[in-house]
């Protein structure tokens, strides 16, 4: 994962006394890590381990009655249409968000990374939704997606789409709102990558008679690889864990059309009163996110190296 910061240090190198002595062995004491480790252990590790235990019980979430049920929560997931459907939705939503957000983010970055006069302003405009709470963005978009033909998107374009009410549209509507909020995030990371592309390379390619597309394909794109890695990773993890936006906009409906793993595990715990089962789903989600991130890093890193 060092890819993310591998060059960062070079930008902060004031004049010091390098190489006065090769003295690498001066490791700081354990005590430096102890406070962080303690807080991390208390707030994250211990509760997660204690929580995992619930995944093997039938605890309702309240009261003292609970018994161990072995692996039956996990086998129940395999027969649970709602959980399986939400897994499908989560995957579709993630793929849609990852692809569209990064393509849009890249196009915006390429557009802003030019000599146009408004580039500084545009950067701010496209990035600004990132800093706002997803719940508030969802409330705003609930209005934008209003089925009323005189309001929102329908009013603007004279459409009659039931954006959040039609089960075959709702999931994509949610993806649209997520992309709107985070395309600027991808843009900024791509921009940082583009700034690292040396101008001379472009000029050399131009002299060789390369067109815009060719220059992008052979000069810009390979050097963007690290930015692509980090963008794909962030948007994938974000997509898989997506909760706030769905909770505030549709709460999983209509029917089960926008139910994601996060909303299902929320409902199992707080609406259906099946805390043990909910924890089992959370555990599956955790393993899933970890596996996907691992595969992504492994694959994308090897791509970076080979180029």
């Amino acid at each position: 994962m060092s890819v993310i910061t591998k060059q960062a240090g070079t930008s902060a190198a004031p004049a010091a006394k390098p190489g006065r002595r090769r003295f690498g062995a001066m490791t700081p004491p354990w005590l430096f890590a102890a406070p962080a480790l303690l807080v991390y252990a208390v707030v994250v590790l211990y509760p997660s381990i204690a929580g995992v235990v619930y995944a093997f019980t039938d605890w309702s979430g309240i009261g003292g009655d609970m018994s161990f049920v072995g692996l039956s929560n996990f086998s129940a997931i395999l027969h649970d249409d709602q959980a399986l459907g939400s897994l499908g939705n989560t995957l579709l939503l993630t793929v849609a968000v990852v692809v569209v957000q990064n393509v849009v983010g890249l196009l915006l970055a390429l557009g802003v990374n030019t000599k146009i006069k408004s580039r500084a302003l545009l950067r701010v405009v496209f990035f600004s939704p990132v800093v706002v709470s997803p719940v508030m963005v969802a409330f705003l978009w609930k209005y934008i997606y209003n089925p009323d033909p005189s309001a929102g998107l329908n009013g603007l374009f004279g459409l009659h789409v039931d954006w959040l009410g039609d089960p075959s549209v709702a999931l994509w509507s949610i993806a649209g709102m997520v992309v709107w909020q985070y395309a600027g995030y991808s843009m900024v990371i791509f921009l940082a990558g583009l700034e690292g592309v040396p101008r001379e390379l472009h000029e050399a390619a131009m002299i060789d008679g390369a067109g815009t597309l060719q220059r992008f394909r052979y000069v810009t794109w390979p050097l963007l690889a690290p930015a692509v890695t980090i963008n794909l990773m962030l948007s994938t993890i974000g997509g898989l864990k997506l909760f706030d936006q769905v909770f505030a906009a549709t709460n999983g409906g209509p029917g089960y059309a926008t139910e994601t793993l996060s909303t299902v595990l929320y409902k199992q715990a707080f609406v259906y009163g099946k805390f043990g089962y909910s924890t089992a789903i959370a555990l599956v989600l955790a393993l899933f996110v970890a596996a996907v991130s691992f595969v992504q890093i492994y694959y994308l890193r090897s791509r970076e190296v080979s180029q």
Partner: peptide
């Protein structure tokens, strides 16, 4: 008897209105 019937009722009505089931 449990807390799951009511949300199921909500969801199937939405699906019925949408013609999905």
């Amino acid at each position: 008897p449990n807390a799951e019937v009511q949300p199921t009722h909500f969801a199937v009505i939405q699906d019925l209105l949408a013609g999905k089931i």
